[in-house]
Design a protein around this nucleic acid. Sequence first.
DNA 1: ACCCCGGTTTGCGTATACACAAATGGCAAA
DNA 2: TTTGCCATTTGTGTATACGCAAACCGGGGT
Lengths: 222, 222
Amino acid sequence: MSEQPIRASDRAYAALLEEIQSGALPPGTVIGEVEQAERVGVSRTPMREAIRRLSAEGLVRQQSPRVLVVSGFDAADIRALFEARRALEETAARLAAQRGERSAFAALAAAFDRAHPEAGALAADDYYALIARFDAELDAAVDNAYLVSALRTIRTHLARARRLARDNRDRLAASVSEHALIAEAISRGDAELAAHATHVHLHHALSSILHSIDPPSPEGTP
Amino acid sequence: MSEQPIRASDRAYAALLEEIQSGALPPGTVIGEVEQAERVGVSRTPMREAIRRLSAEGLVRQQSPRVLVVSGFDAADIRALFEARRALEETAARLAAQRGERSAFAALAAAFDRAHPEAGALAADDYYALIARFDAELDAAVDNAYLVSALRTIRTHLARARRLARDNRDRLAASVSEHALIAEAISRGDAELAAHATHVHLHHALSSILHSIDPPSPEGTP
DNA sequence: ACCCCGGTTTGCGTATACACAAATGGCAAA
DNA sequence: TTTGCCATTTGTGTATACGCAAACCGGGGT
């Protein structure tokens, strides 16, 4: 398709983003320009740009005026993230129901329904691919640069939460049927149902994540 | 208080931001790194960073792979902006009512009430200062980095809308009393009233702006 | 032994030089 | 006159050099 020269700053950004999201660079890791530049194999200038981008998005914060570290991400952050996510996704669902291409969401609803019955057959990656497709359709339907841009940032952080919470099969299956309902509501133009189904979905997703990372008492935590 | 060295990239960003918001750099203006760097009096490196920041925020967009221009801002953009703003501010108001420092908002409500009666005595700048204080309290009360960050971006764009719509006195007075109600609702912990009063306020604000920039027929537009 | 002071080092912020790609203008040929 | 090709120019992307400020470390004084 599109073949841009692929800038070094983009490679640097992608590399660091992936490492932060995957946990390869755990919270608190000091991010030095020279060090990261050498490691990724670019010069300071593009690496600097990548770091500033991560900093603007909040994945990296400055601990002292001279030292940047990978920002922490705990249960409180996840709760805050989902508060913002609710505001944006419920609105997005409502708007999509009002103006979206109905056939696209009908197709998505069918895809979710097809995936659901034998949930065991659905690999986690396939699930996330389906979600990504849904998100892309949602963005297109919403057709609001400000809203979509805010949602993108939220999703960037969400990737970190997903990693903390090891996905369990039951949750994935439930999530599929929740998405099926949202897609169907949008395809029928039912804005209120779309918004409230999104609310329900996010409620369950948050509960699952918090439960997963904050187990009542795994063994005995001091 | 805090006295940081003030970086050249910050000066460059502030300079360009102000010029875009004020309209000194109208939409469509080509933003070249060297040109702007010379004009503002910094080198290419910090100017480049400033431009990337503006680009990330959407105030500047790339027209072709090599040329960046000040992004346009029309009625459709304002409508989209207010859709996103509604989602974020209503949520913010709700959360502030739930967790905010009630005394702070009681004080704000009083300040708005004090400003209202003789609205003629209130200069536009004083009004905006009061709003800024309200926004700051709101951000503090919400205590959610993701939400506040999204709101900040929205407000950056909102400054452009404000300029397009020449403020009229009546609208300012109405806005003051609308804010008084929101602040009072938050101070009383009434989340629903706070959210709905915010909805009402934004509805009026949007109507006023659109009416102002899109007059039924000022004289006769081809 | 502890604290304070000064030198060294490390790292960011900025400036500038180099490379490459695209746009542009002119010149020549049809 | 128009069109196509080539040279030049313009501008971004990247690399690197320079300067300054803060942190670190070692030595000396109390």
